[in-house]
């Protein structure tokens, strides 16, 4: 018989996590319950759904902190997120459809760490930091160091994800996002990209460019970031396109082809810079 615990507070959750590392940690359950009726029941369930200390979206001190238990619906409806972290709100709106957005959580996306996790390139582009906790204490991990391979992360066996901390982009930083899925809604990504680009006029001062679904994990494309630094936007678009190809390892699967993913990844990244040029014109 499967044990079930719904902890009242974070301490109880962390204690249970330490005591039962084999239990399934469940929140929105939108990934872990797929075909659940045909899978072996877990030894136990540690249910974090609506655990108050991790269910928040809070803007303060130059950052927005989003609790691991916040749903994508809460993220996309948060005024501060929509204003300051538009790509995250946009990504949230493209995660599944309404039923999934109402349950799926930031912690789930980050913890599952699927290569097609829709929010993950945004977290990279926005330079998020993750806060994790265990009975041993709390620590912070820059999100760019979080993913260690295909669906593997730096989360220890006794740890839980508490929150993501996202610094507010400065006034000269523009952020962009695009998902290319199998259809217009309720779709798995074929390619997605996010970028935060800091400009001085039409010159790129700094850029963080991230792609998803083109490698075993979401990735920052350092070659692109280096290639565009100091360039005017028009040149940056060309430089970025050229730098994307060698940096990614897309695959053929039932959803798309490596060559399509490669071409679209190049187009998306080039468009991020090109699109800003058009906006700068206005």
């Amino acid at each position: 018989m499967t044990a079930y615990l719904r902890p009242r507070d974070l301490d109880e959750a962390l204690a249970a996590r330490a005591a039962h590392p084999d239990w399934m940690v469940l929140a929105g359950a939108t990934d872990l319950m797929v075909n659940a009726n045909h899978r072996a029941a877990p030894t136990g369930i540690l249910d974090l759904w609506r655990l108050a200390p991790i269910c928040f979206v809070r803007a303060a001190d130059g950052e927005i902190a989003i609790g691991a238990g916040a749903t994508w619906l809460e993220v996309e409806r948060d005024a501060a997120v929509c204003t300051h972290l538009a790509p995250l709100a946009a990504a949230a709106r493209e995660i599944g459809a309404l039923q999934i957005q109402a349950r799926a959580t930031l912690g789930g996306n980050v913890g599952t760490s699927s290569p097609v996790g829709d929010s993950l390139p945004v977290l990279l582009a926005l330079d998020a930091e993750l806060e994790v906790a265990s009975v041993r204490g709390r620590r912070r991990v820059p999100y760019r160091e979080w993913c260690t391979g295909y669906r593997t992360t730096r989360l220890a066996a006794d740890e839980l994800i508490v929150a993501a901390h996202l610094p507010l982009p400065g006034p000269t930083t523009r952020t962009v996002w695009r998902k290319v899925g199998t259809r217009r809604a309720q779709s798995i990504s074929k390619v997605m990209g996010a970028a935060a680009i800091t400009l001085d006029g039409d010159v790129v001062i700094d850029a963080r460019v991230a792609l998803g679904a083109i490698a075993d994990r979401p990735v920052r494309i350092a070659a692109v970031e280096a290639a565009v630094r100091g360039q005017r936007l028009a040149d940056a678009a060309h430089a970025a396109r050229a730098a994307v190809g060698p940096a990614i390892q897309p695959i053929d699967d039932v959803r798309s082809t490596a060559s399509y993913r490669r071409e679209v990844a190049e187009n998306l990244v080039a468009r991020f810079f090109h699109g800003m040029m058009q906006r700068a014109d206005r």
Binding site: Y4, A29, T30, M33, V34, A36, D47, A102, R103
Partner: peptide
């Protein structure tokens, strides 16, 4: 008060 897929909700979570 939110719509969900009931195939993706564990019974324990409904208490």
């Amino acid at each position: 008060g939110e719509v969900v897929n009931s195939c993706l909700v564990a019974a324990g979570q409904c208490d």
